[in-house]
Amino acid sequence: MLACHVRNCTKDNFPLAFADVELVVKPAEENLDFLRRFLPKLDWRALVDTARSLGDTALPDDMPATWTDEQLQALHHVLLEIHVEEGKMICRGCGHVYPIQNGIPNMLLAEHEISR
């Protein structure tokens, strides 16, 4: 859900690519109704690509028109249970690196990168 917000970075700034990741799976309570409402906000292509780059291949290529509970569970696993504990997020457009430490991405920008 996060795009690069560096100044003048308007092309190719979504999704941010992960690198050097350390994954942790934390079980979370399932809330399939919430997920159903969340679906229209997702950029499916970006989500599947990101999930694949993190080594999770449970999601289908195209967004299913009707959702079975299993598919929703797979989505739940990808969205809410996989946490990136350490690593980097890299913007494909400008190459800005956002480091992730202890599961907290550092989105701070330097003075010259702040958009007007």
Partner: peptide, 29 residues
Amino acid sequence: MLEVALEREVEGDLMLHDIGQGFGFRPGT
């Protein structure tokens, strides 16, 4: 403060961010 939040094991996702710099969230998130 975020470290403390980690220690308390809160449920939400955390981010280190200066809100005065603007957000990078996608529209309508």
